[in-house]
Amino acid sequence: MTVNVAAGGLVRACHPEPTAAVTALSGLLALRLGHSPATLALVMAAVFTGQLTVGWSNDLIDAGRDRLVGRADKPLATGRVTARTVRVALAVAAVLCVVLSLALGAAAGLVHLFLVGCGVAYNLVLKRTALSWLPYAIAFGLLPAVVSLALDPPEWPPAWMIAAGALLGVGAHLVNVLPDLDDDAATGVRGLPHRLGPVRARVTAVVVLAAASVLVVLGPGRPPGWAWAGLAVVGVLVVAALRGRGATPFRAAMAIALADVVLLVLRGGG
């Protein structure tokens, strides 16, 4: 195995898309809250290593299941990277996550480590239970708190932001699992989306994400015009997600989640 192949496999095994998305979200929130460049970089570094910890632990735990169902997109299942390499990378990421998180201050650091712990708990146990949504709700709900508690002095974000983040997390969980329902069922995974079934899971995801949009727009006070425009766009996407065919509902639900992130960042500073 060449170094390039192993490195590429290691990148794929960390779940690069959600890792990049959550890290970017933390950076945008930090920028919106007025953090200095140094603290902004520290926030993003802590969140990045936390996401690496969650992503690599997920693929290590699921390696046997992924091989069983022939997941060609999973490097550990295809042999593009060895379990030993991922374990070493995971250990390094976990140590860096602890150090960088605590460097943000005790409050922000402990909240972030709790958030990462929820992600690992999902990988280990909760993804196979009816509580599979809970780690996502906690993690997305508390992410704004990690950023605001890193301020000097530390402060908790408003309740609407925590609630909207939690709704966004639940919706993201439902949407993320939809493409893998059959593979998961074949290996005995029965989280909330599996118990709901594909149709009810999709509808629930759309409703939850739309609720997050409404909360973000109305929560911080009188909404500006652009916020109402964003909510109107979400309304169009909700119709597409509920009435569309083929890949349209999934793509529309993903677009609602993206709109929620944009609205959350833009409304979060005021």
Rank of each mutant, 00 (worst) to 15 (best):
A83F: 01
R243A: 15
V99T: 13
E17N: 06
D73M: 03
R202N: 07
W56T: 11
R190M: 06
A259Y: 00
A247C: 02
L68V: 06
L181R: 05
A159I: 02
R267I: 02
L149Y: 05
W226S: 10
V43A: 02
A255Q: 09
A232Y: 00
A210C: 13
D183A: 15
G246S: 07
V69T: 15
A41W: 09
L104G: 10
A240V: 00
V208K: 05
R128H: 12
N4R: 14
D66K: 05
L178I: 03
A201F: 10
G9M: 08
T23E: 01
L178R: 13
S101D: 00
V116C: 08
I256R: 02
L231E: 02
S36W: 04
I162N: 07
P157A: 09
A46E: 07
A227V: 09
P158Q: 15
W56N: 05
G270E: 08
L237V: 01
L209A: 12
M161F: 13
A6V: 15
L266C: 06
N123S: 11
D182I: 08
N58C: 07
R222I: 08
L218K: 12
V86H: 07
G188S: 06
R71P: 10
L174A: 09
A83G: 15
A211I: 09
V120E: 11
V88E: 02
T39A: 12
N4F: 12
S148W: 06
L96A: 15
R67W: 02
L149G: 08
L124F: 08
V262W: 00
A159C: 09
L151W: 08
L115M: 12
G244P: 03
D180W: 04
T23Y: 01
L178Y: 00
A229N: 02
G64I: 07
E17G: 11
G235P: 05
R71L: 03
G169V: 09
D59S: 11
A159P: 15
I61D: 00
L52S: 07
G169D: 07
A247V: 15
A103I: 08
D183R: 12
L181S: 02
P158C: 03
T49Y: 07
G188F: 10
G141T: 09
V170L: 13
L113T: 07
A89G: 12
L264G: 12
P179E: 02
P154K: 10
G244K: 01
A30Q: 03
